[in-house]
C-alpha cells in the first residue's frame, strides 16, 4: 500500500511529555509534576461555534461512568481497567475506497487537521446523558485529506483488539472487534468529529484514547472508541450492536424521542450530575442537533431506519 506524507514523527513527538504520563504517575510524582509547569497537558485547540453553551459535566463524571465493554461491563470498570491499554505508538489503517490508503501513525494522520473544542450533548441509548467538552478534528477534513473515491457510500470503523491489554476482550460478550459505521454524508458532516482530547487534555483511556469518533446526534454507542481502522465501503456496514440484536439497535441510531428502544422509553433522559432528586428532562429530536442534521434524513421513515 502507498503511504503518503510519511515522516519520522511519532504521536509522542507532538504530545507534551507530561501528557502521556498518566495521572497516577503525575500525582505520585508530586513536586516533579508541579515543576513541569502549568502547560503540561494542555492541547492546542480553538473553540467552536458548534459548541453548546450548556454546562459540561465534571471530568470526574465523564471519566468514571463509562460504557466500554472492552474493559468490562460495569460503568466503573473502564476507569479501573483501561490504564493497561498502550496508546503510544498508535496507528490507524485507512482502507477501502480511498485515494491514499495506508497505515498511518496517529501524529501523521492528524497533521494539518486543526483541533477544536466541541462541547456536545452526549445521549446514551440507556437514557442518560452528559455534556462533554471534547477536543478533536472534523472527520470530514480527514476524509478530504485521504481522498474518498466515487464508489464510497459508507464508512466502517473498528476498535483495537488487544485482549492482553483489554480485560473485557478476554470474554466474548461482544464479537470483537467492535465495529461501527456511518453513511458518508453523516461522516462528512461538520458536527462529526474524531476526538483526541477532553477538557483540554489528552483523552483518558476509558473514554476511548487515543482517538475516537463523536457523532452528537446519535446514541453514544455509535461513537466508537480507540479506533484502529477506517474503511470506506460501498455497502452499509453491520455495526456490532445491530449484529447482536437488530430489533433493538439499528444502523442509524439517531437520538429520537418518538422511537422507543423495545426495553425502555427514549422520550426522556436523566442528565448526569443532577443528584438523586433531579427531574428527568425531555429528549430532543436528533439530541437537539435537528437544525443541522435533520435534512440528512429527508424522506426517510425513521421508525423503520432506527
Amino acid at each position: 500500500m502507498r503511504q503518503p506524507w510519511k515522516n519520522d514523527m511519532n504521536w509522542s513527538d507532538v504530545t507534551p511529555k507530561a501528557a502521556w504520563l498518566n495521572r497516577r504517575q503525575l500525582i505520585a510524582g508530586g513536586a516533579a509534576a508541579v515543576a513541569a509547569g502549568p502547560a503540561w497537558a494542555k492541547l492546542d485547540y480553538k473553540t467552536s461555534a458548534l459548541s453548546t453553551d450548556e454546562t459540561p459535566n465534571t471530568l470526574e463524571e465523564i471519566t468514571t461512568y463509562n460504557n466500554y465493554y472492552e474493559f468490562g461491563t460495569r460503568k466503573s470498570d473502564p476507569a479501573a481497567n483501561a490504564h493497561t491499554l498502550k496508546t503510544d505508538p498508535w496507528s490507524v489503517e485507512i482502507a477501502g475506497l480511498v485515494d491514499k490508503p495506508g497505515t498511518y501513525d496517529l501524529a501523521e494522520l492528524m497533521t494539518g487537521l486543526p483541533l477544536e473544542e466541541r462541547i456536545y450533548r452526549f445521549r446514551c441509548v440507556e437514557a442518560w446523558s452528559m455534556v462533554i467538552p471534547w477536543i478533536g478534528f472534523e472527520l470530514g477534513k480527514l476524509l478530504e485529506k485521504v481522498g474518498t473515491q466515487p464508489g464510497a457510500k459508507f464508512l466502517r470503523m473498528e476498535t483495537v483488539v488487544r485482549p492482553e491489554e483489554m480485560v473485557g476482550q478476554r470474554s466474548r460478550i461482544l464479537d470483537w472487534p467492535y465495529v461501527e459505521g456511518l453513511r458518508l454524508d453523516e461522516a462528512m458532516h461538520p458536527l462529526t468529529i474524531m476526538a483526541t482530547g477532553l477538557y483540554g487534555e489528552e483523552l483518558p483511556n476509558q473514554n476511548g484514547a487515543p482517538i475516537r469518533l463523536v457523532v452528537p446526534w446519535k446514541y453514544g454507542f455509535k461513537s466508537i472508541k480507540s479506533v484502529v481502522k477506517i474503511e470506506l465501503v460501498a455497502e452499509q456496514p453491520v455495526n456490532t450492536w445491530q449484529a447482536i440484536n437488530a430489533r433493538e439497535y439499528g444502523f442509524y441510531s439517531n437520538v429520537n424521542p418518538e422511537v422507543d428502544h423495545p426495553r425502555w422509553s427514549q422520550a426522556s433522559e436523566r442528565r448526569i450530575g443532577g443528584g438523586l432528586f433531579a427531574k428527568r428532562i425531555d429528549t430532543q429530536m436528533f439530541n437537539g442537533y435537528g437544525d443541522q442534521v435533520a435534512s440528512l434524513y429527508d424522506g426517510m421513515d425513521l421508525t423503520k431506519n432506527y
Binding site: 463524571e61 468514571t64 461512568y65 436523566r270 448526569i272
Partner: peptide
C-alpha cells in the same frame, strides 16, 4: 451513599441506588 456520592456507580445516583 446515593445522596452524598457522585463517582463510580453513584455518578448516576438514581440508577446506582
Amino acid at each position: 451513599l446515593a445522596l452524598t456520592r457522585s463517582t463510580g456507580i453513584w455518578t448516576n445516583q438514581v440508577q446506582g441506588l
